[in-house]
């Protein structure tokens, strides 16, 4: 990226004000994705002095500050083990430690990347996001927004729930983007089936999840119907990573394995 000026924001308000001053001003998280885009930036706004890199826990949620690097999240005990280690497995499949010490959870969410593995798992954990101006909302609601994000992401909140989880990333090599990723969780509160890298951004197969919850037993015929419902509500397309028919084969295979893993204790 080509940066004319660097600015260390002194408060969230200051950061937002500076962001709005010029369309070429941008917020920098880890800066890893911004570097790849090679964008022309007038003022790069650094949030390094705002203490947004902490993880805190209350009775019902874990709050991760937007500037928290991904590798730091892997070191948080509860997040490491929640939903059978779903989030930890996801994070560890994103490049190496060097990148994950820089890339932030805020830059991950704000980027709304179609290929994102992390967004898939966050959706399956029913995450909420907190913006300085727009306030708190479901991650799913934010992901449906389009255009430039004219706000400052402050934190992401993950409800503390006991439950089972399954995550799968399929890629040609360990460092490549996913051809498809999938996260399934089941807790007393909710069941989620989320498909990502479709190649569009991750999407909840909420009708399929509801259908599964309504069944008394999970057998092969239930799984088949649930998968059909999921593939009806979530569109899979083609790009240079995989064709839509290959993505469908992957989705069928891993939805079955995932549902069996979280409902029947088999993997």
């Amino acid at each position: 990226m080509n940066i004319e000026k660097l600015y260390r924001a002194s408060s969230c308000e200051d950061a937002l004000k500076t962001l709005k001053e010029d369309p070429k001003n941008v917020i920098v998280g880890g800066g890893t994705w911004l570097k790849l885009t090679g964008r022309e930036i007038k003022t790069a706004i650094l949030l390094d002095d705002l203490s947004l890199d902490t993880i805190s826990t209350s009775d019902d949620v874990i709050t991760i500050g937007a500037m928290t690097p991904l590798h730091k999240i892997e070191q948080q005990d509860e997040l490491r083990t929640m939903y059978d280690g779903l989030f930890d497995k996801t994070l560890k499949q994103v490049m190496g430690v060097g990148l994950r010490n820089m890339a932030t959870i805020g830059g991950t969410i704000a980027g709304r990347y179609g290929f994102s593995d992390i967004i898939t798992s966050l959706l399956a954990m029913d995450a909420r996001v907190v913006f300085y101006q727009k306030g708190e909302m479901q991650l799913e609601t934010f992901l449906k927004t389009r255009g430039k994000l004219d706000d400052l992401l402050i934190s992401v909140k993950i409800p503390r729930r006991e439950g089972r989880g399954f995550f799968k990333k399929v890629a040609t090599t360990q460092l490549d983007f996913a051809q498809l990723n999938l996260a399934i969780t089941k807790s007393n509160e909710a069941t989620y089936i989320v498909i990502g890298s479709r190649p569009g951004i991750a999407q909840n197969a909420s009708k399929a999840a509801r259908f599964v919850v309504e069944q008394k037993h999970l057998d092969d015929s239930v799984i088949k119907v649930a998968t059909d419902i999921a593939l009806n509500e979530v569109t899979l397309s083609s790009n240079n990573k995989a064709s839509s028919s290959y993505r469908e084969r992957l989705a069928r295979t891993y939805i079955e394995r995932g549902l069996k893993a979280v409902f029947n204790d088999e993997s």
Binding site: I3, L6, V28, G31, T32, K35, A44, L46, D48, H71, G96, V97, G98, L99, N101, M102
Partner: peptide, 16 residues
């Protein structure tokens, strides 16, 4: 290493 943590210097702004 930045404060003993591995980071990628090609993508880290020196100012940080």
């Amino acid at each position: 290493l930045i404060n003993n943590e591995p980071m990628l210097s090609c993508s880290l702004l020196t100012a940080r």
